[in-house]
């Protein structure tokens, strides 16, 4: 409970720092590059298998009532609206969030943050704000990318491994997956990215010098777990509001 209120206080300062103007362009570019391009490989592999699995696994359920032809719709809607944004968020938490938390915790433990303060550089504006911006910008893009890879993989699974008709799959996608669905997915990515970054920065920032090497491990661990759980729960809330 105490942690939660600490988080609120941290979030207040961090958001104030985030919206007090765009950060230095060079730092921002470096962070976006690190968060976005650095995660693409991992995200590609994960969505590839998730997309394939979405087709292969739901096939047997649809086959029971002769609805194999609707696999395209199911894979499209389920993937774009729910699976790929959550996937991108978990990858983001596991890789970007963990990196952020580890980096900040490391700076905290080696007293670099205090050094910044002594030089009257606000660490919130110099360290936290660019990272928040970077992840918030990178994750929607990653989400869109995951949609493309995932649907491609679902198509491959359905057509080349299950022997369904490719034309039906594509026409299903065209008919039932609308632009709004893509936008909802990307919007979810935006929210998740911001949240994951905020949680990761908070846990990184909480590490103190006395925690030592262990503090870095704890910060990384909490950043991953809290980020993933928050995103999954929030995903349900957003979906409920939009589709319930």
């Amino acid at each position: 409970m105490k942690t939660f209120f600490e988080f609120l206080v941290f979030a207040r300062y961090a958001v104030a720092a985030q919206f007090s103007g765009l950060p230095d362009r060079r730092i921002l570019a470096e962070q976006v590059h690190r968060a976005g391009v650095g995660s693409m490989g991992l995200l590609t592999v994960l969505t590839l298998f998730a997309g394939l699995n979405l087709s292969v696994q739901s096939y047997s359920t649809f086959e029971r009532f002769g609805g194999q032809d609707f696999l395209g719709m199911f894979a499209g809607i389920g993937g774009v609206r729910e699976l790929y944004p959550v996937m991108a968020a978990i990858v983001c938490g596991a890789r970007i969030g963990a990196n952020l938390a580890a980096a900040l915790a490391n700076m905290k433990i080696s007293e670099q943050v205090e050094a910044l303060e002594v030089m009257s550089v606000d660490p919130m504006r110099y360290l936290v704000a660019p990272r928040l911006w970077a992840v918030t910008l990178a994750l929607p893009l990653l989400c869109g990318y995951a949609d493309v890879v995932g649907i491609g993989a679902s198509y491959y699974g359905a057509v080349h491994q299950l022997g369904l008709d490719g034309g039906t799959f594509v026409s299903q996608l065209r008919e039932f997956v609308h632009l709004e669905d893509l936008l909802v997915g990307v919007f979810k990515g935006l929210i998740f990215g911001w949240l994951v970054a905020l949680v990761a920065c908070f846990h990184g920032y909480r590490a103190a010098k006395k925690d030592g090497a262990e503090g870095v491990g704890i910060a990384t661990n909490r950043a991953i777990v809290h980020g993933a759980v928050l995103c999954i729960v929030l995903n349900l809330v957003i979906s409920w509001i939009l589709y319930g």
Partner: peptide
Amino acid sequence: AEAVGKAANDTVVATI
């Protein structure tokens, strides 16, 4: 300390 954080992180990524 940095290597510890990296090991924790790599574990999660590799297992996912």
